[in-house]
Amino acid sequence: MGTILSAKNIYKTYKTSSGDVPALRGVSLEVEKGMFYAIIGKSGSGKSTLLHTLSGLDRPTKGEVFINGENLYQYSDEKMAVFRRRYMGFVFQQFNLLDEFNVLNNICMPLKLDQRKVDKQFLEEVTGLLRLEDKLKKYPCELSGGEQQRAAIARCLLARPQIIFADEPTGNLDKKTGEDTLDLLQQCSEQFGQTLIVVTHDLEIARQADVIVHIEDGKIIL
Rank of each mutant, 00 (worst) to 15 (best):
P110F: 04
R59L: 07
D180W: 11
V199R: 00
K117I: 03
K137M: 13
T177H: 05
L222F: 08
R25M: 13
V91W: 06
Q162S: 10
L29R: 01
S18K: 15
K117H: 05
L111I: 04
K62P: 12
K175T: 15
I215W: 11
C108I: 12
Y11R: 11
G146A: 03
P140K: 12
L97F: 05
L57D: 00
D114K: 13
P140E: 12
L143F: 13
R116M: 15
R160S: 13
I39S: 07
E100K: 06
T13F: 05
G128F: 13
D210E: 05
R59I: 06
L98T: 06
G171R: 00
L143E: 10
L158T: 01
D210M: 07
A166Q: 02
T16I: 08
I205K: 00
D210P: 01
Q208S: 13
A209P: 03
R131G: 11
Y11Q: 13
D202V: 03
V91G: 04
L136H: 11
F92R: 02
L57N: 00
D58K: 10
T200Q: 00
A23P: 03
R59K: 15
N96H: 14
T127M: 06
E32C: 08
F101M: 14
K135Y: 08
Y139S: 03
A209N: 06
M109E: 12
K33C: 05
E125T: 13
L136A: 07
I212A: 07
S43R: 10
D180K: 15
Y11K: 12
H201T: 06
A209Q: 04
K47E: 11
Y14H: 15
F95D: 08
Q93N: 06
I205S: 03
S18D: 11
S76W: 13
D202S: 05
I197E: 07
